[in-house]
């Protein structure tokens, strides 16, 4: 089943009177349970593409269908809702709320999803156990290591059972051992049937994926299957 279909997507910025094509006619289909890596040098448009796929941004022109819904026609609240229900973000800098416990950080998407407290606690605990943080639920981010923080972030991304998990340089701020652990968790999630999209510039990280897309100057220059599904 096709989850994401990008059709002739353009994103054009106007910088000082000059037109900058961040995305220059992107065509891309992502199916359920794919493990995809988006690569490219800085300025290639990979962040823009990730924001587009993550429904944080809308295209200047073109058609973006997410599970058949027309994303480019949605208003801000509809975009917020689709991000809440269908997309789990994992950021390079973790982006946890510093004053809240791991448990509470994981509960936040559920609060915005209007899920009752008892249910919420159950779901958040389960997500934290899934990423191996059963004994760190009530710690605040500053009491956790980098790897543990990123695991909280992954738990937060997957707590709502989203259609895709979108990881932007998930190991960028981690030492190699923690990075390895995090990639192990993502691999596991993929095996369990999640769709994962990685944005990275590191080849060894991209190797975990089964399909690699390379971007240059807002265009897809390569789309290759690394491993067979």
């Amino acid at each position: 089943m096709v989850l994401i279909a990008l059709n002739n997507i353009y994103k054009i910025y106007n910088v000082g009177g000059e037109e900058v094509r961040a995305l220059d006619g992107i065509n891309l289909e992502i199916k359920e349970n794919e493990y995809l890596a988006i690569m490219g040098p800085s300025g290639s448009g990979k962040s823009t593409l990730m924001n587009m796929i993550g429904c944080l941004d809308t295209p200047s022109s073109g058609v973006y269908q997410f599970e058949g819904e027309m994303v480019q026609e949605m208003d801000d609240d509809q975009l917020a809702s689709i991000r809440n229900r269908k997309i789990g973000f994992v950021f390079q800098t973790f982006n946890l709320l510093p004053k809240a416990t791991a448990q509470h950080n994981v509960e936040i998407p559920l609060i915005y999803g209007n899920i009752r407290k008892n249910e919420r606690i159950k779901m958040a605990s389960k997500a934290l156990i899934d990423v191996g943080l059963a004994d760190r639920m009530h710690h605040k981010p500053n009491e956790l290591s980098g790897g543990q923080r990123q695991r909280v972030a992954i738990a937060r991304a997957l707590v709502n059972s989203p259609s895709i998990i979108l990881a932007d340089e998930p190991t960028g701020n981690l030492d190699s051992k923690s990075g390895h652990e995090i990639m192990g968790i993502l691999d596991q999630l993929h095996q369990r049937g999640n769709t994962i999209i990685l944005v990275t510039h590191e080849d060894n990280i991209a190797q975990h994926a089964h399909r690699v897309i390379r971007l240059f100057d807002g265009k897809i220059t390569e789309d290759s299957k690394v491993k067979s599904e």
Binding site: G54, D76, D77, A80, S81, R83, F89, N95, Y112, G113
Partner: peptide, 14 residues
Amino acid sequence: REIGVRKAIGATKG
């Protein structure tokens, strides 16, 4: 930044 994170994980304007 917190606002950005909250919006990314589904907070609406309201």
